[in-house]
Amino acid sequence: MRIRPRFFIGVGLIVLAVGYLIFSAIRTTSEYYLTVSEVASRQSELGGQALRVAGRVKAGTINWDPNTLTLRFEIVPIPDVDAAGGAVKPVVASDPVSLRVVCAGEPKPDMFAPGRDVIVEGKLGPGGAIAATQVMTSCPSKYKPKQSQ
């Protein structure tokens, strides 16, 4: 198939438009996707930046106020399954790194519970807590993680 040169103009314009849209949208909408430890170690440079942080809800830190729809909790790093050869490292209550999260104006997600993995979206506030606009719980298709394998 041959395409006359003037058709390359049209084709080129569409390709450029798609490329431009992708480029500009990435610049304006991207968020850092970090783990709890990464946020902790880079706290100073992340202030005001849109973030997504994956962590595990620490037991005993949850405070839910249904009147103001304010959810406060702390997240700790999700233990690395692969590194430990498949054995899941238990979350110790005294885990050194933890990150405070405050989510106001949103209902508490169904799956939200101590020990569950969540993704928190929001910005790092001056006090080192994340002001979250959204807390998402991951929905596993399976409940009991297999210990063998």
């Binding site: 949208a25 990435i26 909408t29 991207s30 996707y33």
Partner: peptide, 18 residues
């Protein structure tokens, strides 16, 4: 070396005009 995600705003912004 850093994970950057784009959420629904990215997709809406690109795909809306298209």
């Amino acid at each position: 070396g850093v994970k950057i995600t784009v959420g629904p705003p990215f997709f809406n912004r690109v795909n809306g005009p298209l």
